[in-house]
């Protein structure tokens, strides 16, 4: 596949996926407007945000403020490159795809932090620093559970990892993997119940000063990030494009949707965790569990 082909594929995937995710989230809130209204909700919302002007604060860091949504979307896009859609070599089959993905997801910290820093306003800034605490706490367990899937595959290529699941999906072979992955992925996408940087106790936190197109691009980039995380989740734990009868790409789509719906519903039904509890949770619960996952899976693979 050429670079241009991959670019078109990734962009299309993220735009469509982000749309579906926003619709799913809208349905999860439980307003009585119904499915039809939810389907047009993203369009109406985007139209409104495009009509609003971009506001600024007194002395913001303009460059950082414009860079943050761009960087977040860039990271979401580059994280999706190594994920194969219907065959091991489809997509940008990168030998060390897992490393690229892991690196991109941890740099999300920079995008979120500067988005909170840029407006020079107290509440967004607290949000940015909260996110730093979160990523430092879950970055290691997140990388560990993703890396563990490379052990039986003997490769860091995502295509090879999917192929290694032809007998048994890793969600069963590595039972701790997917739950830890979903929890840490929600945290990295600052999605509920870990939406601490954008919490309602900070009046919207990092996004409190953003309006119009700036808010639209930020929300879009975050939805795209969720899609990338769900795509990788299904590839390394749910056997990616493997599945009977249906074509491979359809399996990828179905499994991605399942993970997106799980994440969306958790975001709206679970209470936001306190930041101190979260740091404790990341280090004392998630990290040891992730280490157990590594060695248990290693033992099984031998």
């Amino acid at each position: 596949m050429t670079a241009l082909g991959i670019l078109v594929q990734v962009m299309a995937l993220l735009v469509v996926g982000a749309y579906i995710f926003v619709v799913a989230d809208r349905l999860m809130v439980g307003t009585e407007t119904g499915v039809r209204a939810a389907l047009v909700y993203p369009v109406r919302r985007l139209s409104f945000l495009l009509l609003q002007p971009v506001t600024t604060t007194e002395r913001p860091d303009f460059e950082a403020w414009i860079l943050a949504p761009s960087l977040l979307f860039g990271l979401a896009a580059v994280g999706a490159v190594p994920i194969p859609l219907d065959a091991p070599s489809a997509g940008g089959d990168i030998p060390a795809g897992l490393v690229l993905f892991g690196a991109a997801m941890l740099i999300v910290l920079v995008a979120v932090y500067i988005f909170g820093w840029a407006p020079n306003s107290a509440l967004p800034m607290i949000g940015g620093y909260r996110f730093a605490a979160m990523v430092l706490s879950v970055g290691i367990p997140f990388s560990l559970v993703v890396l563990t899937t490379a052990i039986p595959a003997e490769s860091l290529s995502v295509g090879m990892i999917v192929e290694a699941q032809s007998n048994l999906w890793f969600v069963i072979e590595q039972p701790l993997g997917l739950p830890i992955y979903l929890v840490t992925a929600a945290a990295i996408a600052f999605w509920g119940p870990f939406d601490l940087p954008e919490g309602s106790d900070l009046a919207g936190g990092i996004a409190a000063e953003a309006s119009g197109p700036r808010l639209a691009t930020w929300r879009f980039a975050r939805a795209a990030l969720m899609v990338t995380l769900a795509l990788m989740g299904q590839a390394v734990f749910l056997g990616g494009y493997l599945g009977p009868v249906l074509p491979g790409w359809l399996w990828t789509v179905i499994k991605t949707l399942i993970l997106l719906v799980i994440l969306a519903s958790a975001g709206r039904t679970l209470a936001r965790m306190r930041v101190q509890r979260f740091v404790w949770f990341g280090w004392v619960i998630l990290l040891p569990l992730a280490l157990v996952d590594v060695f248990l899976s290693g033992w099984i693979a031998l």
């Binding site: 241009l4 670019l7 962009m11 860039g74 940008g92």
Partner: peptide, 9 residues
């Protein structure tokens, strides 16, 4: 390709 996608995005 990854670099192209990142810069383009």
């Amino acid at each position: 390709a990854a670099l192209v996608v990142f810069v383009a995005a």
